[in-house]
Design a protein around this nucleic acid. Structure first.
Lengths: 335, 335
DNA sequence: TTTTTGTTTGGTAACGTTGTCATCTGAAAG
DNA sequence: CTTTCAGATGACAACGTTACCAAACAAAAA
């Protein structure tokens, strides 16, 4: 029984010695470089397996100045959206031998800068950021590093290089049209998180602007400080209705809030959509299971991650791209 | 306007040259080593800022054989549970200058092995795995690397070193007691994902065993192949009830399924809990906003991540720990 | 046969950092 | 006025890889 103490790392040299070849040949076999004879390859693989050799990527990445890491910074994990995007990112990265290093900014620009600084120190081959409102410090750092950057979620604004997302202003305007076209004339709005995800503010403003444009201005809105959740949505709607009893429809910053609001209506005898229409945002699964199916604006989050990772991988520095994945209305019964 | 081309990396040497000191002094200042005069520190910091210097962790980690990375392997992101755990992990890691490198196994043991191999190549200072059922290959690799390992979610079984989680067999048994103690005598069970997360199978088996022990055996169960979601829960319950109309209570593998089932009941005139009691698992936010509050077994997922990261950081290789965070019943109205 | 060409292998020198061992101050102790 | 010692700083050699160039060899062309 061997001691479970610090095992000396098995290196290329060890494998080379055992296989009776040069270091560099081992390196080439491990990297599947071309022009390797079968004999050499077999000897090396045999020796590597015998010794339990694992390449040290730290050394390889240092030498080639090209780690197979991708830095990903998202604002939060306690929100269905980002895990789904991450899932999409990882599905592409892992298929290409890349790994994601994660940073969570908690919607705090300073933390984002810190996270980016921290992650860039690993010489990632690319960076995925959330939102287009990157601080100047972040922009400077990534430009100094000279790596591809893809910003996700948002296409309203100027990207550092490339972006994959949707136009939140278009979504807000579309929500307004959707409600007005269906005859609602007294719309309200509910948000959360103090609108720290700037994207929800953009939607609200575009929603309000389009409503005003069409002569049916926003009657009232409520933005609570807490994190989005169904209970918070119920609370927000109750509070909004007490201040604005005349509302006939409400647009929500996300489906969590909208579902909670739907529950509030069910519990309080408010008929949906006859007395009040509810329009969500994001199109998460639960909305399609509620007794009254939630009408929502659905977005493609997994795909957003996939496209972002792809853009990073076959990056063409000379032609940054902005990919708008669009959105669509789910056929619910709450509007 | 400088060309956005490949910028040469700014290294310690550059900073040292500009500051007029030795390389190693710059290194020491950057690492906040002791015994540095204020004069030296100021010169170095000034130069580093002027040049926009960022340390290269690849080189540092290679030299010290100690990266500040923690490898985290989870089975999925499309499940509220793991993002929350990750959030907890990251909160501790980021406070300690560590970063998480992520691997997603998709509940596939082969992918898990691959992810671990991939991540270990970065010489992480620790590894967080999901579940206690790590394959022999994984165990061998981490032992060869000699780094601390913490396994999360589960405490029923043998950990490689340390574990943080709950006892799913205890939870299953407690669910049985909970229902029986409240007078229900004909319980059923609903699961999903083909029970690939082994933990849900353990809960079901313990649930069934305790029921049998107390003379009220499990009447029937339904485990659908698809991923857990509210719509799937509704579907599963409908199907279960058609096969076993006499059920008076159902225990669910998770709250997503249970909430969907609750909706199914509401839409079909099944009174909860008079006609049918529903007991969930996980205690996610939405369950406390439904018109009939969902009764559930709540677990501490964020804290699980926190404790796992802490265990990794102040690791004592000689005394691995198993931390059982326990569970509790939420005071819902569905049982 | 000789020359050309291409395939296969090896030697050497980095990549950017830090551990280890000097060296050099200057002040306290003798 | 030495000796001692702690506090600062520096020189050098790694860490484990891979890029680059050179060399050996074999096969094809002349």
């Amino acid at each position: 029984m061997t001691s479970p103490k610090r095992t000396e790392r098995v290196t290329l040299k060890d494998v080379a010695r055992v296989a009776g070849v040069s270091d560099i040949s081992v390196s080439r076999v491990m990297r599947r470089a071309p022009n390797i004879s079968d004999g050499l390859r077999d000897k090396v693989i045999q020796a590597a397996n015998d010794l339990g050799y694992t390449p040290n990527r730290l050394a390889g990445a240092l030498k080639t100045a090209n780690s197979n890491l991708v830095a990903v910074v998202v604002p939060s994990m306690s929100n269905e959206v980002f895990p789904e995007v991450l899932d999409g990112i990882d599905s592409v990265l892992s298929a290409n031998g890349l790994s994601a290093v994660l940073g969570i900014s908690k919607y705090d620009p300073d933390r984002e800068v810190e996270a980016v600084r921290e992650l860039l120190a690993w010489s990632p081959m690319g960076l995925i950021l959330t939102g287009l409102n990157a601080s100047a410090a972040v922009t400077r750092m990534v430009e100094a590093q000279g790596i591809p950057v893809v910003q996700i979620m948002d296409t309203d604004g100027t990207a550092i290089q490339s972006a994959v997302g949707i136009s939140h202003s278009a979504a807000g305007a579309a929500a307004a049209d959707f409600l007005l076209d269906r005859g609602y004339g007294a719309p309200g709005y509910v948000g959360a998180w103090g609108e720290r995800p700037a994207r929800s503010r953009i939607r609200r403003e575009a929603f309000a602007a389009r409503l005003a444009e069409r002569g049916a201005p926003l009657q009232g809105y409520k933005i609570l400080p807490g994190q989005s959740s169904a209970p918070l949505g119920a609370e927000a709607l109750a509070s909004l209705l007490s201040e604005h009893p005349g509302l006939d429809s409400v647009f929500f910053a996300n489906d969590d809030l909208a579902v909670g609001a739907l529950f509030h209506c069910m519990a309080n005898g408010i008929r949906v959509p006859q007395d009040l229409a509810l329009l969500g945002f994001n199109g998460i699964a639960i909305g399609s299971a509620t007794p009254t199916k939630l009408t929502s604006i659905s977005t493609q989050r997994f795909r957003m991650g996939v496209e972002a990772a792809k853009l990073l991988i076959d990056n063409d520095p000379d032609s940054p791209k902005t990919v708008d994945l669009g959105f669509s209305f789910t056929d619910g019964a709450s509007v």
